[in-house]
Amino acid sequence: MRANVSKYELVTPASLADALKLCAGGHKPFAGGTDLMVLFESGKLPPGRYVSLWGLSELRGITADDAHITLGALTTYSDVRVNAVIAKEHPNLCAAAKETGALAIQNRGTLGGNIANASPAADSPPALLVAGAEIELRSLAGTRWVAYDGFHTGYKQTLMQAGELITRVRIPRASDRVSYYRKVGTRKAQAISKVCVAASAKVKAGVLSDLRIALGSVGPVPLRCKHTEAVLVTRVIDAQAIKEARDAVQKDIAPIDDIRSTREYRLTVAQNLVAELALRFVAS
């Protein structure tokens, strides 16, 4: 381990109220640790004061009312995987949870942590974008809900203010939608995505409406592909539509070369998968 342990403080608060006080004082949140422990091991986690959220039962659990499914920020991937309501209405989110890390990571990694870590390559953000998620941010100053679309403002940057914690995530109830999720990783499991696509739509007589497509690993933030969506709705999906959608993908995303893949590959695969999902949706 390359970190100097003595340079870190990790406080376990008794309640959410205590945690918020600590955050207000500059403690940084530490949830499941599946991202931060990797940095810690390699000596790259900034030394300082952290607050462990893991024991805060207020931040756990999945509930549903007529309008929303609400997930506590500490909901783990394992919790999401097996939730019947989510599986029925937002299968993309379950698929994303299954694709994340391995079982041990899924037991420990949290939805709130995944959002706050703000990696453009994370598996659940495309599914959350497509689901129309909202994020509850809480601090000593109060509570606010923000749309998840637009939450990520730049590479590793978010709307979160100092002292704020992600406390809940809610997604609208959904029905009669078709879904598509595909993670293109570097191997079948235990992989970081090179391209990740989530989509859902309503389909009637071979025509798509309310189409939402979101991609991960193809820009500085996980993003909705609004040009592409606009091209594919309320028309027949023919070769011309697919061609236009491919062109639109190029406008929507900004992939780069990095150690995992290339700009060219990410763009081409994103285009291929948009074509695949459109054809699959209209065939369904």
Binding site: V38, R187, K188, Q190, I192, I259, R260
Partner: peptide
């Protein structure tokens, strides 16, 4: 078909098991 050492200036740039892709049992 998996394991690629990414070289930058003679140095391995992907020296972690996250980015140097060894097949797992799933592969």
């Amino acid at each position: 078909i998996y394991e690629k050492v990414v070289w930058k200036e003679g140095r391995m740039a992907n020296g972690q098991m996250t980015n140097y892709i060894m097949p797992t049992s799933a592969d």
